[in-house]
Design a protein around this nucleic acid. Sequence first.
DNA 1: ATGGCCTTTATGAAAGGA
Length: 255
Amino acid sequence: MKFATWNVNSLKVRLPQVLDWLAEHSDITALCLQETKMDDPTFPQAEIEAAGFHVVFAGQKTYNGVAIIARAPIEDVIINIPGFADPQKRVLAATINGIRLVDVYIPNGQSLDSEKFPYKLAWLAALKEFIAQELQQHPKLALLGDYNIAPEDRDVHDIKKWEGGVLVSPAERNFFNEFIQLGLVDSFRLFEQAEKSFSWWDYRGFSFKKNAGLRIDHILLSSALAAQCSACEIDVEPRKHERPSDHTPVIATIL
DNA sequence: ATGGCCTTTATGAAAGGA
């Protein structure tokens, strides 16, 4: 089985690329999307199902929005974090082939002095409680999505440029480590990886060409799943396409 | 360099992203 995550930065723009990518990667069991940026009535459910997939989605107009596309039936869906009142659609949990997937679009936070930053931290605290509960019911769990956290300095092309900002702050990295303390494992770091491996590059200033990126999209696995994980890779190919998303897919292989 | 680019909403300009 292969599970993937991809922040598509508008599914309206990127749907053809998503369907092409799934056709080229016929071994992908399920793909978690973030930033679909569309409300549910406009979601392209018919097109995705016509291509032979199952799909669930939770969206809103203009901002955020998550979806899971799968080749097998999707069961036990939860939208948003139970008990955490939030009009923003950022979480979708579902079971596929007996594996619990939690698809997250963690808030960006904007800047350390923005009112959006305490929202990000409160949101992460609520997510941690939710994941702790989900783990009790689902030992085989993957937490995958756009975390908007670069966990270590090696996940940042130029740490001096980013220091003091969001995505790399100690408060955010502490939350990433709290997920690790829940028993989750960063699947990417289970394996030897090329230096300067990133999943996001700014659209500005030829950042992709210069590989001036960040690794902020992650697949964390419960210990039961990590024991079955044989690979985790970032697929940079879609970032080379015409009109790309600024993020590129991350894929974990489960035996 | 208080920038650069892309998407959205909406039709001009601004917000949000990371």
